[in-house]
Design a protein around this nucleic acid. Structure first.
Lengths: 254, 254
DNA sequence: CTGAAACAACTGGTCTGACCAGTACACTTA
DNA sequence: TAAGTGTACTGGTCAGACCAGTTGTTTCAG
């Protein structure tokens, strides 16, 4: 506290940034709450003493961050929005797609998330969610003959329900982003390797096992299965040198 | 494919949004790469056939998303940026602060990440990184008397090195975001509960144990320890009903 | 010939003032 | 009372302007 005064680097703050900052603060500190309205752009230009172009730039930034929404003609002004995971989702997607992140990392990440969500789902799932899962796996089984599109849709449904049943949005969002990025990457790599029938049967068997573990509320087993299956599925695509760490994630601890 | 034509909901697309979309696409598809330059705002208004105000709004949105950077006076035009975790970080923070995401979820998320990164670090760490960790824990031990600021800085250093040694940026980024959000939340909750000496000693002991597991390349043990400690640390702040799932995450599998 | 100073041609940041197409709400009118 | 009409707002966009800052070039003194 009584340290010598220290100077820190500065960077010019543009007017619209200062406005964003203020409004963001007001939202963070609950002075502004979802449903509240901001004054109109023309009023705002008065209170911030800037031109409309400037307040609009600020508003656009806030809007792109999912904090407010403007609608033309609405006399109540821009609306403060409930925070939504959409922005996080987009940010995650961008990061992963940018190639800053290696396939191995993505798979490791997915292994953890998938495992954890299955464990949590086994604990937290409601009876309704269990039935949804049952319906999804049965749909998979039914569509195994009719085509890979319907099959993988049902597959996605099953996993989506598991995420939901985990009651952990954060994992859901991150897992979803990772899954999306992963299929993109894999599609780029081996374009359109269509699910072979054998492949489908394997996936189905896996999902059934997981389902039963969740049904039995056996979280440890559900997590272990999920991890193992993801590793098995993506393992071959990963360079040999990177497989050790992955394997470790599969079967942890005492 | 031959389905009946289906109409879908539309929403008006503002001009600046269309511009953002196009530039975002160009970046995602690698037509535009980090270091590349966009034409100047005045040129852009020509190519998109809009006014400068509109291209500026688009640029502001892209800038707030961390995709480009404009600098006044630079005749080369706005620069395409390397994707950075900053946006993700901010998005996660906002989501957590807004209360959309519960403390429990955040802790669960952190438990997974912390565990996984320790496991991976045990496998992937280099000798140099091991020494960094050793230095950090020793710094913790040394500063245990001198004050909590230095102590927790060393603590953060230790964990940062572990993240780094895991060689998984994704986990690092998410873990960091979660950690940041968590300390924010906890600081709000019990404001400035200063690390008691006992608390510090406990943290130190934990970190030492983890360090030794990483040193011994015992990934399973390192992960298990990390999970257990995080659970122990945050467990009390979590509502009783939510603790079961958390406990499950700690000691998984067979 | 060299190095420094002056310049010109750009850049982004901001402002003013204007127009349009929508929306909400009060005010008619049947 | 119910349907229709106005009107006064909203946000979206445009045009044109000014300033301060950067860059690269040109000029000029040594």
């Amino acid at each position: 506290m009584t340290d010598k005064t220290e100077f820190v680097a500065v960077k010019p703050v543009r007017a619209y940034e200062a406005i964003v900052e203020q409004i963001e603060q007001a939202i963070a500190t609950r002075q502004l709450n979802p449903g509240d309205r901001l004054p109109s752009e023309r009023d705002l230009m008065g209170t911030f003493a800037v031109s409309r172009a400037t307040v609009r730039e600020a508003l656009r930034v806030l809007e792109s961050g999912g904090l407010v929404r403007s609608r033309p003609g609405d006399p109540r002004g821009p609306e403060i929005l409930q925070a939504s995971p959409a922005t996080l989702h987009k940010a995650m997607n961008r990061l992963v797609r940018s190639g800053t992140i290696k396939l191995t990392e993505l798979v490791e990440f997915r292994v953890m998330l998938e495992g954890a969500s299955c464990t949590l789902a086994a604990e937290h799932r409601t009876p309704e969610q269990l039935e949804e899962m049952r319906a999804a796996v049965e749909a998979m089984e039914a569509s195994i003959a009719s085509g890979s599109a319907a099959f993988s849709q049902a597959d996605v449904d099953f996993h989506a329900t598991v995420w939901e049943a985990s009651h952990n949005q954060l994992m859901q969002i991150c897992g979803d982003a990772a899954r999306g990025a992963l299929v993109d990457l894999v599609n780029d790599r081996i374009d359109s390797a269509p699910d072979s029938r054998a492949q489908m049967k394997l996936s189905l068997a896996h999902d059934y096992e997981i389902f039963h573990a969740i049904e039995a509320r056996d979280g440890a087993r559900a997590g272990h299965l999920a991890r193992t299956f993801v590793i098995e599925y993506y393992g071959e695509m990963i360079e040999h040198g990177d497989r050790n760490g992955l394997a470790l994630l599969g079967v942890p601890s005492e």
